[in-house]
Design a protein around this nucleic acid. Structure first.
Lengths: 159, 159
DNA sequence: ATAAGAGCTATAGCTACTGGAGCTTCAAGA
DNA sequence: TCTTGAAGCTCCAGTAGCTATAGCTCTTAT
């Protein structure tokens, strides 16, 4: 399965068509071209991008992968694999299962977050002075090092 | 060196102490100062930041809130509320429950993602040419535009 | 002919930090 | 006292994945 654009194409899409069809913004399409995910299409006489069917298929692949939460770099790898049909499927599996693992980790983290927030909210308020939530937030965690190991949302791993 | 409850009487912390104690990086502390979350402390003769107990408590509050996934702006609001103890607790509750809702939404989304990834991975691999994952990624699901706004082939633009 | 809408490039902004360069200051040991 | 290494300082750039704006040009319909 090749997802690269071919020159022999009778369909002509403007960038707006492509964006609408794939459900992303025009700027996003240009951005994908800029970072090398989507190859630069030929231009019209007025310097406007002219896309073909293969571009559409490749963009659809990209969007679908992004929807599933694959990073741009993962999409790059997946595209590379999709373009070399003779290789084993193993590496594709690898990427997908690593991603699944991350997703499951995220779910775990969010669930414990949910529990804590629910606990915080199980008091009803008077004045802020006695606000349980503020109170709870003021207490530092037992394990300070834990915070530095996680990203901003407390979910994504730190770099 | 950790700032234990005993050591907290010593109200002279270096930025490194503060960072270690709160479990974030030195740069992060400076960043919080820069964006106005943490007030600028006095400096030593050699121009180094000297923090006190109140700084420590405020930073702990910030880190705790961030761990719970509150955005910087939310933390700003929460801090503001914590600083005006006569107001009602209602707004604090508001922020927290809005946040809980977001967390629950995220969990829902990730769970459906998880289901799909598991489905993708439920096969064994041969060549990429027949790879189910690549196949599945190539099929777009959420592009109502493609089917409804385009011609019968779903690809040709209306021009 | 004209006007609306779409496309073009270039650049900046978003979140919440993180890392590095190139410097100064501090504290401890010889 | 000198030295050395760690820690501090400021300033700037970079991360991911777009999104938005400014100020143009091009296309298309009337």
């Amino acid at each position: 399965m090749m997802i690269s654009p071919q020159a022999i194409d009778n369909t002509n899409f403007s960038i707006g068509d492509l964006a609408k069809a794939s459900g992303c913004k025009v700027q996003t399409v240009r951005y994908y071209e800029q970072i090398g995910l989507l190859p630069a299409p030929p231009r019209s006489l007025g310097n406007q991008r002219v896309y073909g069917d293969a571009h559409f298929r490749r963009l659809a692949f990209i969007r679908r992968s992004r929807e599933l939460g694959f990073t741009i770099d993962m999409v790059r790898e997946l595209l590379g694999m999709a373009d070399t049909p003779d290789r084993s499927c193993e590496m594709v599996d690898n990427i997908a299962s690593r991603h699944l693992w991350h997703v499951q980790e995220k779910i775990r983290a969010l669930k414990s977050l949910q529990r804590e927030l629910k606990r915080l909210l199980r008091h009803d308020g008077g004045k802020v002075a006695e606000c349980q939530i503020i109170e709870a937030l003021s207490k530092s965690t037992t394990d300070g090092a834990r915070a530095s190991k996680r990203g901003a949302d407390g979910l994504t791993p730190a770099r």
